[in-house]
Design a protein around this nucleic acid. Sequence first.
DNA 1: GCCAACGTTGGC
DNA 2: GCCAACGTTGGC
Length: 146
Amino acid sequence: MAYWLYKSEPSAWSWEQQKAAGAKGTEWTGVRNYLARNNMRAMKIGDKGFFYHSNEGLEIVGIVEVCALSHPDSSAKGDPKWDCVDIRAVMDVPKPVTLKEIKANSKFEKMALVTSMRLSVQPVMDEEYLEICRLGGIDKPPRSSD
DNA sequence: GCCAACGTTGGC
DNA sequence: GCCAACGTTGGC
């Protein structure tokens, strides 16, 4: 069971656009960082994750899930170094959880969002996932492949 | 818009 | 293989 967090600048690709992409989902292209890529390679179908708005908003706005395993990133022009998964929107976070709240909460002091500020695709611990869902007003958090 | 953090590149 | 220079990310 694993959870993840995906960062996106809303001016480049927003949660609204992700939702509009529907159940088919979209390729999470453009990641050019080895750690982030390795995280995507480790993902399984149905793994849940947060959709985070960087630069503007600075908050977790939605929950997504992996709907295709990692495959060559079509935006990488055949460069075999870069892979990505497909993700699709699962649900809104009714009360978006802000970076400020996360930083102010000692439960999240080890969270990658705090410790590895610049990593664009990062792992989320089970406890962190559940706590953020609670803060976000989600009664029954969708779980990764049970 | 600034700048700190940090990943990547390239000269040696 | 080291490390300085450079580029990018992303919070503020």
